[in-house]
């Protein structure tokens, strides 16, 4: 029984962390049709932002939940203005340019922080489930992921920005038709996506540590979550996270964490083969 609860928590955690690392990418892909291969580095920068801020005496909560998203969000806007905006409509070139950006950022952070793992210790301690102990921080990550998804839902459902976003997702010319300045919308969207990635990177930093090439570990997983999910940002990310997170965690329990990841990636390839439009391309088409 205790084991079941423990496993349930682990599965939820796997789902939550997948959703968290993917949602920024999903926003950028869903609204702008831009595949950002520097996404993993945005997460990495979020981790570093949080670590630098805490080591300068800031509260870890403030560093993770406020500083990291703001810093990475600003970086996102800069990237959109200096690189991405020249490449709209050239999907493959955007992929290549952001891959270049990713290498650039890895190089830069290696020179700045060295090629070693830095960490912040996870706050909040641990708690007991029968014979097992697990960390409270796990629950915190689940809470943050839920909060982020709920926040996006609220924005999409009830604000003008959300209306615009939904319009853009269905018809790329919608924003222009509504008399909104598309460059501004794109810059904001990219910034928001980057900020959420920064948040995710910071929140996961205490779990995984941060090092310059950590983005690689994130990027493939978040990609397949987004593509597996399909065009609908919220229901897509959520449904693909549930599917892949569960597979990952169960395979991890059955074998090793590494093969858990392999199972996840392999499942994703099969899913893309079966549903090239993603889960939401087939089901929940009207979702957000």
């Amino acid at each position: 029984m205790d084991l079941v609860v423990l496993v349930a928590i682990q599965v939820l955690y796997a789902i939550a962390s997948l959703a968290l690392i993917s949602v920024g990418l999903a926003i950028i892909f869903g609204m702008m049709r831009v595949i950002n291969l520097a996404h993993g580095e945005f997460l990495m920068l979020g981790g570093y932002a949080a670590i630098v801020a805490t080591s300068n005496g800031m509260s870890i909560w403030l560093a993770m939940l406020v500083v990291a998203p703001i810093v990475v969000g600003i970086i996102g806007v800069i990237v959109e203005r200096t690189i991405i905006r020249f490449l709209y409509g050239r999907m493959i070139d955007t992929m290549l340019a952001t891959w270049g950006l990713s290498l650039f950022l890895v190089g830069l952070t290696t020179a700045m922080f060295g090629n070693t793992t830095v960490g912040i210790s996870a706050p909040l301690g641990s708690f007991q489930i029968g014979a097992y102990r697990t960390s409270v921080y796990t629950l915190f990550v689940i809470a943050v992921a839920t909060g982020v998804l709920a926040g996006i839902y609220a924005v999409m459902r009830w604000t003008r920005l959300g209306l615009l976003a939904r319009g853009t997702m269905q018809n790329a010319n919608m924003a222009a038709a509504l008399g909104v300045n598309p460059p501004r919308v794109y810059a904001i969207t990219f910034g928001v996506g980057a900020a959420l990635s920064g948040l995710a990177g910071a929140v996961l930093a205490p779990v995984s540590g941060v090092f310059p090439t950590i983005g690689v570990a994130y990027v493939a997983k978040s990609f397949i979550t987004v593509i597996g999910g399909g065009a609908a940002i919220l229901s897509g990310t959520a449904s693909a996270s549930v599917l892949f997170g569960t597979i990952n965690q169960i395979a991890t329990f059955a074998t090793t964490p590494v093969f858990g990841e392999v199972a996840l990636l392999a499942a994703a390839i099969v899913l893309i083969r079966l549903l090239p439009q993603g889960i939401t391309g087939r089901f929940f088409r009207r979702g957000l």
């Binding site: 690189i83 020249f86 490449l87 070139d93 290549l96 340019a97 891959w99 270049g100 950006l101 990713s102 290498l103 650039f104 950022l105 890895v106 190089g107 830069l108 290696t110 020179a111």
Partner: peptide
């Protein structure tokens, strides 16, 4: 990676 990244971005653009 730093140099390669700059080269890649520069060439694509």
């Amino acid at each position: 990676p730093f140099i390669l990244g700059i080269i890649l971005v520069a060439f694509v653009l």
